Amino acid sequence: MQLTGKITRDSLMTLEAYAKWRKAHKAEVIEHRKLRTVHLGEHITVQFESEMSIRYQIQEMLRLEKIFEEEGIEQEIEAYVPLVPEGSNWKATMLIEYPDISERKRELARLIGVEDRMFVEVEGHERIYAIADEDLDRENEEKTSAVHFLRFEFKPVAVQAVKAGAAVKLGCDHRNYPAHVVIPAETLASLAGDLK
């Protein structure tokens, strides 16, 4: 999988080429995703996206749906490309996970607005709150969704601090899910590469 800085139809593999590539490289993509995953408490997981993770997601959708026509490929690109970081931000998929169905239903009702209370805090700088679900609203008056898409937009001074090695916390200050965690060094090193 060649990272080009921009995902276009011409930069994607054909279904046949991807099938061969996938056999040889699936494990490294899984490791990349694992490296960029941060658990916040027991029930929230944040998967920071990258060009590699989104390119893989698009290729997987094309493979699973057997999409090879131009229009279908463009639709998949349009759906996923907004999740690729653009140099001044981190973008992530946030998952709220409760294995028990009745507990999940109860907690999703208690966690309305949680996506707007997610933040990253660069050491020595103010919190950067997530801009959530820019494509569509994923909650209603009764519950929030179990999946949200987040964008953390950095000021240039915060970018410089991250690149210089400042510690960064991922957190949530929702009244029903207060939590924070220091992003591990190896994960932070990968995320710092998203910032220009």
Score class of each variant (00 low, 15 high):
3 L>K: 07
3 L>F: 10
6 K>Q: 15
10 D>N: 13
10 D>R: 07
12 L>F: 03
13 M>N: 08
15 L>I: 04
15 L>P: 02
17 A>Q: 14
17 A>C: 03
18 Y>G: 00
18 Y>V: 01
18 Y>D: 00
22 R>C: 01
26 K>M: 11
27 A>I: 10
28 E>W: 03
31 E>M: 10
34 K>N: 15
39 H>I: 01
42 E>Y: 11
43 H>L: 05
44 I>F: 04
44 I>V: 15
46 V>M: 05
48 F>N: 03
52 M>A: 14
53 S>Q: 06
59 Q>E: 12
64 L>C: 06
66 K>H: 13
67 I>A: 05
70 E>Y: 06
71 E>Y: 09
72 G>H: 04
75 Q>D: 14
79 A>W: 05
79 A>K: 13
80 Y>G: 03
84 V>L: 04
84 V>D: 08
85 P>H: 04
90 W>V: 01
90 W>H: 02
90 W>L: 07
90 W>C: 02
91 K>R: 15
92 A>T: 00
93 T>P: 04
95 L>H: 13
96 I>V: 13
99 P>K: 12
99 P>N: 07
101 I>L: 15
104 R>H: 12
104 R>G: 07
106 R>K: 15
108 L>I: 00
110 R>M: 12
111 L>G: 00
114 V>L: 10
119 F>P: 03
121 E>V: 05
122 V>R: 01
125 H>V: 08
130 A>Q: 03
130 A>E: 08
134 E>Q: 11
134 E>T: 11
139 E>D: 11
142 E>P: 02
145 S>M: 04
145 S>Q: 05
148 H>A: 00
150 L>C: 08
152 F>M: 02
154 F>H: 01
157 V>L: 10
157 V>A: 14
165 G>L: 02
167 A>G: 08
167 A>R: 15
167 A>N: 13
168 V>N: 06
169 K>A: 09
171 G>L: 06
171 G>E: 02
180 H>L: 07
180 H>M: 09
181 V>C: 03
182 V>T: 15
185 A>V: 08
186 E>A: 07
194 D>S: 07
194 D>F: 12
194 D>H: 15
195 L>M: 11
196 K>G: 10
